[in-house]
Design a protein around this nucleic acid. Structure first.
Lengths: 138, 138
DNA sequence: TATTGTTATACTCTATAACTATA
DNA sequence: TATAGTTATAGAGTATAACAATA
């Protein structure tokens, strides 16, 4: 088997693991009353660093005009606030509210739940895998 | 660091790698003129084994009623055919057409393109990683 | 009665294009 | 002129509920 084939198999396996988790991810969003894009948005927002709308659009891989609606709905639920940026009043910074920070924490906790299949690796194998993935993820 | 923490870090890293690929995946769908659910549907369908609508709904993690629309649009493009199942005429089996098989192949090729970051692993590391992921993916 | 797939409805996401207000 | 965000529009995805055909 050539190196290229092992890279392909690697990528296929990784995709399979993640695909198997899709149901879990969607269930978390539904349980917390969030649509998937709303959940991703919440995950990208951090309490410390406010994000311009356009930056969030880039992170969500969608058009600016979509972010308007997504943020509208998060703001209507009191999870996020828009504040005009000081240096450029065209830009609007997104800030998490207390409720938003709380919900974001819940999302993070639920998303961190590791798949049961991970139990098939012992501690040493897990650390080995972590070391390899770090190289890929940087 | 406890074993639990290394499993959490493992999962976080895996999610990061996949998240970084989301743009690439969406770009492939757009280039091939497919919506994401249409692309997943195509990937789940195989030329040999026809799938009932409800099975596809389960694989896509959505309601049966959504599959009606998704398949409507694939069928309108001549990629898929509905055929009533012999054993139970309520069930409709989904078959790929020649055009559907062809396009499915293109999707597969594009999705198999490995992230550039994989080049940071040498051949032996890649095989090590494959062995570990196989345990998780089964 | 129960199940498969459809239809009707309402809401969300999505891109494109035109618009506003700033710069 | 150019850019950040909004609005308008049209198409697609989504769940729920009611329905037809079949079992």
């Amino acid at each position: 088997m050539r190196a290229t084939d092992s890279a392909t198999e690697l990528w296929t396996l990784l995709s399979q693991v993640m695909m198997a988790r899709r149901g879990h991810t969607l269930a978390i969003a539904a349980e917390l009353g969030l649509s998937p894009p709303q959940m991703w948005a919440l995950r990208h927002l951090e309490s410390e660093t406010p994000l311009p709308m356009s930056t969030l659009a880039g992170l969500l891989h969608c058009d600016n005009s979509n972010v308007t609606g997504i943020v509208d709905r998060l703001e209507a639920r009191g999870l996020v606030e828009r504040r005009p940026a000081a240096h450029d009043r065209r830009v609007k910074h997104l800030h998490l509210t207390a409720a938003g920070t709380e919900l974001r924490g819940q999302v993070g906790e639920r998303m961190a739940e590791t798949p049961e299949a991970f139990a098939r690796l012992d501690a040493s194998e897990q650390q080995q895998l972590v070391a390899l993935l770090r190289k890929i993820a940087m």
